[in-house]
Design a protein around this nucleic acid. Structure first.
Lengths: 145, 145
DNA sequence: GCGCGACTGTTGCGCCCGCAACTATATGAT
DNA sequence: ATCATATAGTTGCGGGCGCAACAGTCGCGC
């Protein structure tokens, strides 16, 4: 499969372009939707935890979260029990945007998997889980980032 | 498949991290290997053609190709038949690096597809072709970029 | 208590991407 | 021949990522 990585990159970049357009009037960057979604799903997470959850370097979490706070999507409160940590909470604005994010996400998957049967979709999903597992192991960083 | 895009992103970023490490002493950026490989495979391509071939915006081709020329991996010659175009040719340095690039690429795929049978690998490959096709169509830009 | 190592978060740096605006060249219609 | 349009490439801007170095905080052993 000489072109696997090429295809993967194209899919990845197309997904970002698609989402960027859809979010245009929401002021959400193409990658920020995941941050919003995860913070909505885990209110009170720390940036460190979010970094591991999203498998993204903590420096990016710091920047994206600062940007989202500035735009009013989330709120950062110091953890009273551990003043090093910042707890992340979604604002109403984030909760309102979550519907749109879900919508865009499912619409994208629908387009992406057009022509795939339910069995094929399940198969791809299972393959991707295994591949992601292998990728993390092979890149050196176990579950870190 | 709620996590398809998450997995895709992780695989994509892990692949870049892995290759970046492997190429460290060659002075090749994590994305430049594709440019070198494609220019070796198609000596004399124009930047415009390469842009379509790699499905990357032409501005990036201009920058990456300028960087590769500066590092001595490729050569740009004006097309005598059309002075707008620049024809790209690999240098000996690129041809020498190509072996390493192939090696890293197959080693990565080997790690990525660890535990996959030949049939499964073929299935994934076929799925990815279809998905990439759908992605390009869905992102608006037919085959452009 | 005190101090050293571990942990959380921030910032500067470099790399890569896409878009829009620009220059230069080529082509086609008048 | 001339001028409008199309094409090839370049550059400034903004966005995202990873790494390394740094600051503040916690915790444990002494």
């Amino acid at each position: 499969m000489p072109s696997f990585m090429r295809n993967a990159g194209e899919i990845w970049r197309c997904a970002n372009l698609y989402r960027l357009e859809e979010y245009e009037e929401y002021g959400i960057g193409s990658y920020q939707d995941s941050y919003i979604a995860d913070i909505c799903a885990h209110p009170g997470v720390t940036q460190e935890q979010l970094s591991k959850l999203m498998y993204v370097h903590k420096s990016n979490v710091a920047r994206q979260v600062a940007s989202l706070e500035e735009k009013g999507f989330i709120e950062r409160r110091a953890d009273p029990a551990d003043r090093r940590s910042l707890l992340l909470y979604p604002t109403d604005k984030a909760l309102a945007a979550r519907g749109k994010i879900r919508e865009v996400h499912t619409a994208w998957l629908e387009k992406l998997f057009e022509g795939f049967s339910a069995e094929e979709r399940a198969a791809v999903s299972a393959f991707m889980d295994r591949l992601a597992e292998n990728a993390k192991r092979a890149s050196g960083r176990g579950g870190e980032r």
